[in-house]
Amino acid sequence: MKIVVCAKFVPDATADRRFRPEDHTVDRAGVDGLLSELDENAVEAALAIKEAGSGDGSATEVTVLTAGPEQAADAVRKALQMGADAGVHVVDDAIHGSDAVATSLVLAKALGKLEPDLVVFGMESTDGTMGVVPAMVAERLGLPAVTLGSEVTVDGSTVRIRRDGDASSDTVEGTLPLVLSVTDAANEPRYPSFKGIMAAKKKPVQTWSLSDLGVSADEVGGSVAWSQVTGVTARPPRTAGTIVTDSDGTGAAQLVEFLSTNKFL
């Protein structure tokens, strides 16, 4: 079985994430980046499926696919260190500023070349937090999509997930080839081992440009984006209020007083 994991390079959420003032796009150069934590869950899901063995006894290969700037190679490397077998990095200046629709086009074209049986996505990117690219890619490729799995089992060519919704928890299944996305509740991503880090250095990584994919530069990027950011304002941080300590045993009484003064009781 051939599995491709789509994983994104994102600015570190614990750093000072910001926008480029000139074009309102996410600053990916000036802020430390990493493999999106939510895509680590996708890598982990793929590795777990590989380790469980495919139904027909054939070997499973896991390829990680990312579209992003030069530094996004770090995200590919991290996935290889975790245990993915190969990497594909789509990098092209023309991709800068792409919206989700354009990103889904680039990924769909790359997947068209890779011809996987199973495509695994994270639930959302930690910077864009849209959670739409998996469904868009499935739509473009005409593949079934079982999305937001919090528990995944692969049984021969059937992929089954538990999908936790507001009103119910559902079991959803589909047949390979398909698109799968997993939530952060699906698994606990492994840390790369020393062996994994050393092995990653020898794993094959291909770098593709838009022309390798047959995508023209005027189909992607900020200038043709189907939506446009017109304004960005920093929200003033909340300021701390009154902090009391319960060391004298009056904490509860003081809290009741606060709730009462502010008419919550």
Binding site: P237, R238, A240, G241, T242, I243, V244, T245, D246, S247, G251, A252, Q254, L255, F258
Partner: peptide, 15 residues
């Protein structure tokens, strides 16, 4: 506590 309007430092099981 950096964003709390009111904070109590203590054990929630008591408070």
């Amino acid at each position: 506590f950096e964003l709390a309007d009111f904070g109590v430092v203590g054990d929630l099981h008591k408070i």
